[in-house]
Computed example of a mutant assay.
Amino acid sequence: MISFRRTFIAVLAWLSFASMVDAQMIVAHRGASHDAPENTLSAFRLAWQQNADGIEGDFYLTADDHIVCIHDADTRRTAGVKKPVETSTLAELRSLEYGRWKNASFDGEPIPTLDDVIETVPDGKTIVIELKSDASIVPRLIETIDRFQNEPIRFLVIAFDADTVAMIKKQRPKQRVHWLTGFKQSTPSAPFHPTADEIVSTISRIGADGVGMQANRDVIDAAFVATMKQGGCGEFHVWTVDAVADAKYFADLGSIGITTNVPAVIGEGLR
């Protein structure tokens, strides 16, 4: 009976996720990273306390096939000792400390695994998994998500690497995945790329469910969003937004998610 109930709740969670185009998730960027050390369990737990709808974390595959949560390719910035993440074992990475750089009160923070982070997610909430490793992480990622498939939580996978997105969609067509992109100019007076049409082309080619875009108000406006929707890309989220006015701007354009370092501030401002 308990198993049936959890499965039923999980189905409701997926249906709820599909309806998010009509609302905005407040997603805590690397957890509540303004107040706690990024990509740590303390930051993720604090995000839930601050009423975030979702958390976002960065994930690499280790040398011994574990998925760990850290933004940089090595540990120097957050642990003070340089160890390349992808060529280190979990035990080697766990020998370091990841919280003291932010504040002495966080001394002793370990590097979390993906499983550790998932286990913080309350029923009905969302975990946004940004893949930093290349497509080699996909088999382990799918195995992990499959183990938690009956939990009443939602998964959104995001990646800048288009080939990684395409591989996930090929192996798990029902898994929601967004391709990530920033915006660049070749010169200060040149147009920004990718354009809305270029985003549509990429999304169509790799089969992504939507796009996660750098929150650039010089690029993203009603016409930009309309072009994407007309081309078949009707779902987008933006990162990283810490001002309420900007959050309202992108919410009004129909963003399904606002990723922020200050979920309490943005959540209160939008709600």
Rank of each mutant, 00 (worst) to 15 (best):
A36Q: 04
I9K: 15
E56T: 13
H178Y: 10
Q171D: 12
Q24M: 08
W48L: 06
H34A: 10
T40M: 02
I118S: 01
T89L: 05
V81F: 10
T227W: 08
V138Y: 09
G182I: 01
D146E: 14
I206R: 01
Q171H: 09
T113W: 06
A43Q: 02
L15S: 09
I70M: 13
R147M: 12
D221W: 07
A223W: 11
G231V: 11
D72C: 08
T78H: 13
E130D: 11
F192W: 14
A36C: 12
K83W: 10
T240S: 13
S189K: 14
F17Y: 13
N51T: 15
G267Y: 01
F155Q: 01
R140Y: 13
I203H: 04
I258D: 00
L96F: 05
L131K: 03
R172K: 13
I206P: 00
P263N: 06
S105L: 09
T87V: 14
S42V: 06
K170E: 12
T113A: 04
T195K: 02
V157Y: 01
N216L: 12
F17S: 10
K184M: 09
A247M: 06
A208P: 08
V21W: 12
A226C: 12
V11W: 14
L270G: 04
G182N: 06
A43G: 07
K132D: 13
V11E: 10
F224C: 08
L46H: 04
I55L: 13
G124V: 03
V244E: 04
A226E: 15
W14P: 00
A243Q: 12
G210P: 03
K132L: 15
C233P: 07
D134F: 12
G54L: 06
R6M: 08
Q185N: 05
